[in-house]
Amino acid sequence: MPPYVPPGPLDADARRQGIIAVTFLVLAIALTALPPAGKQVVASALRASVLRPFLGLQELVVSASQRTLDVQQLQARLDSATARLAVRTTLEEENRRLRALLDLAARVETPWRSAQVLRPGTQGSESIFLLNVGSDDGIPPRAPVITREGLAGVVREVRDDHSIGMDWTHPDFSVSAMSRDGAVYGFVEVRRGLFREEDRLLLTSTPYHTRLESGDEIVTSGIGGVYPRGIPIGRVIELAEEQGGWITSYWVEPYVSPGDVVQVVVLLGSADSVADGAVPPPAFEQDSAVYRGADLSALWPEGETGTREERWNRERLRADSLAALRDEVARLQQTIDQLRGVDSVSTGPGGQP
């Protein structure tokens, strides 16, 4: 007969696990036999004691998942609202530009054509733009291109269905100019900077004995007949230089930003050079003065000129003032109606109290 060997650690663990398994089996059988009310009591006790940490952890996981879902939904709504706002802002800006251009075109007495500006986008053509109108539409070479703010450029070449123009940043750009009151005459030319944002206009060849102040407006003079008289160019910033005590030059801030030009009006010639209902000739000679005597100063009244941002700010302030005035009139009308109601109550028939 072999000697007795006491159970080792592994046998003790196996026995303990077996006892635990049998205990849980007995408890499961006992719980199965309990009535529904008893099962509910046991379940509540287990949730409040043993299962409480696990249930709390599960609630945290579910809450985090719900918050993640809410954040994703809010982000989607924000993206959608941002996209709608961007589209609305673009449409509002386009509508403002078109309304301003229509207002300008309605007052232009010289023949004109509306056109859309396209930029080539190639290196070296930053100062060049394309117009979707050409000689078939009556566009002549050297036709002025204007916007609601003022002079944007000039047509250089004309094709059958499109034209090529240059804005004021082109090195060949030059225009005979004067102060708005006609006291000072000169030529406006471009001075290129190290970067395109640094390009500036310079009013040159002005008489030494006459002075311009900062803020004085510069418009086309009409000399030479290429540009009509009175188209805004910009405003004087400061004195640039004095040459030998004879002439002076001034830096000029342009009203038209080339990058913002999308819709324009192309002038075809003076009213005297184009018969009523007739299409102007596709070209004219270099020395022809088709705009001689034409004056467009009335299109840009004093105090209504400036950059696009300045013009929009004035329109916004005007709209706010009108809205405030309407609200004030409505309040006054409401007060008058209330006073009339009080008078009607305080007086009897026939106006007797």
Rank of each mutant, 00 (worst) to 15 (best):
L10H: 13
D13V: 15
Q17R: 15
G18W: 11
V22G: 05
L25R: 11
I29D: 13
I29A: 15
A33N: 13
L34I: 03
L46D: 06
A48N: 11
S49V: 08
L55S: 07
L55D: 12
E59T: 09
A64I: 03
S65K: 14
D70W: 09
Q75C: 00
D79R: 15
T89I: 05
T90R: 15
L91K: 07
A100C: 00
S114T: 04
Q116I: 11
P120N: 05
Q123Y: 08
S135C: 07
I139D: 04
R142E: 09
E149L: 00
G150P: 02
L151T: 02
D160C: 01
H162E: 13
P171T: 02
F173R: 00
V175G: 04
D181N: 14
V184L: 09
V190T: 14
F195T: 14
R196K: 13
E197M: 10
E197H: 12
E198Y: 09
P207D: 06
P207W: 08
L212N: 08
E213V: 05
S214K: 12
D216S: 14
T220D: 06
S221K: 07
I223W: 10
I223N: 08
P228H: 04
P232E: 08
G234C: 01
E238G: 03
A240N: 12
A240C: 08
A240V: 01
E241K: 12
W251I: 03
E253W: 07
Y255C: 01
V264F: 09
L268A: 03
L268F: 03
S273Y: 03
V274M: 06
G277I: 05
P282K: 10
S288C: 02
A289C: 03
Y291T: 00
L296Y: 07
L299Y: 10
P301G: 06
E315M: 05
L317V: 06
R318T: 10
S321A: 15
V329G: 03
I336W: 03
Q338S: 12
G341M: 14
V342G: 00
S344Q: 15
P349K: 09
G351E: 07
Q352Y: 15
